[in-house]
């Protein structure tokens, strides 16, 4: 493989990591506060649709991102009410929300298709080339020629690290996730912390979805997230609930995604021919990100979930 191909692969890795990173770093907040959120998938999907619709009708992709974040927070509010206030099972509620979002986005998009006879193509973002830095050989083109949302996603990582380990907010979030009763005794508002982190996570996941529809593409496709919300969830587990670990895990999955696209495009064909492989059916590379996620989870072994993960907290209960 020559240098250009390698740069292309690494550039695509960063690009494809971005949607995962938004969802995973956002989800990390509520996970650390003890709310398991496998509804990331549904929120991403909704964000992809809403981001696309608003960018399409307003002509401004940034408005699309804002609207996506709002829609994600709205669904997160429903999730938070059902789980935190009513105390319903977090996993079951999340599964229900994923189902609802699959249906909702499907219906709305097909209606939109029916109403617009022309092409459904939304305005997208332009790449921002960072002056100076982009001229560095290899690293420059890999890291500093991206959509603005890509930089934003990666900036969220040190921000999360700072918030978790250097602020009282972060301490409250972690306390609520490890020992809600103790946190409550010390005056931390457990429900408020959980509500806010779930809303934040929902908004971020939805932006991650919008990256797919108006960042990487310029249109929405039914079920376009194709399990990325679940992969983001796995990235949190694989990253051992730390921002840095979560980012590294997301990068691994992003790399697997970039690699499979290249295998499909036949870029690695000479390599395969040297190995004596004549033809690779497209289904094999497509499976790669899911297989990598599974293998990664296998090797991480027993993981230490936040102690109060998925447990409803009720002040009145003994």
């Amino acid at each position: 493989m020559d240098m250009d191909a390698l740069i292309g692969l690494l550039h695509a890795t960063i690009r494809l990591t971005t949607p995962l990173l938004f969802a995973a770093i956002g989800g990390l907040y509520n996970e650390r506060a003890g709310v398991i959120n496998i509804a990331l998938e549904g929120k991403m999907l909704l964000g992809a649709l809403v981001g696309f619709m608003v960018a399409f009708s307003s002509g401004n992709p940034w408005l699309g991102v804002l609207a996506a974040a709002a829609s994600g927070a709205l669904v997160a509010l429903l999730f938070a009410y059902v789980t935190i206030t009513l105390g319903a099972d977090q996993i079951v509620s999340a599964v229900a929300i994923n189902l609802m979002m699959l249906g909702f986005t499907g219906v709305v998009f097909r209606l939109m298709k029916a109403a617009n006879s022309g092409s459904l193509s939304a305005p997208t973002f332009q790449e921002w080339t960072i002056p100076g830095l982009a001229q560095i050989p290899v690293l420059g083109p890999v890291l500093f020629r991206h959509l603005p949302l890509v930089y934003l996603a990666f900036l969220l990582v040190p921000l999360a690290h700072f918030i978790f380990y250097r602020t009282t907010w972060g301490l409250s979030i972690r306390a609520v996730g490890e020992h809600p009763r103790a946190a409550d005794t010390l005056g931390v508002k457990v429900r408020t912390v959980r509500y806010l982190t779930v809303l934040w996570g929902g908004a971020m996941a939805a932006i991650g979805g919008a990256v797919l529809s108006i960042g990487h593409n310029s249109t929405f496709i039914e079920n376009m997230t194709a399990g990325r919300g679940f992969i983001a969830f796995s990235a949190i587990v694989f990253g051992k609930w730390t921002p840095l670990g979560t980012m590294l895990a997301s990068l691994l999955f992003g790399f697997a995604d970039a690699l499979q696209l290249r295998i499909q495009a036949g870029i690695l064909e000479p390599l395969f021919r040297n190995l004596g492989i004549q033809e690779v059916a497209y289904q094999i590379p497509v499976m790669l990100p899911y297989v990598v996620t599974l293998v990664a989870l296998f090797f991480i072994g027993k993981s230490h979930w936040p102690a109060a993960a998925a447990i409803h907290y009720d002040r009145e209960e003994g």
């Binding site: 429903l78 059902v82 105390g87 509620s93 229900a96 189902l99 609802m100 979002m101 249906g103 909702f104």
Partner: peptide
């Protein structure tokens, strides 16, 4: 109205059910 609308009905039914049980 597209068939996928029933996903919404199913999801809502689950949400109401678990919210109702709590």
């Amino acid at each position: 109205v597209d068939v996928v609308v029933i996903y919404i009905l199913q999801g809502l039914a689950i949400v109401f059910l678990i919210a109702g049980s709590s």
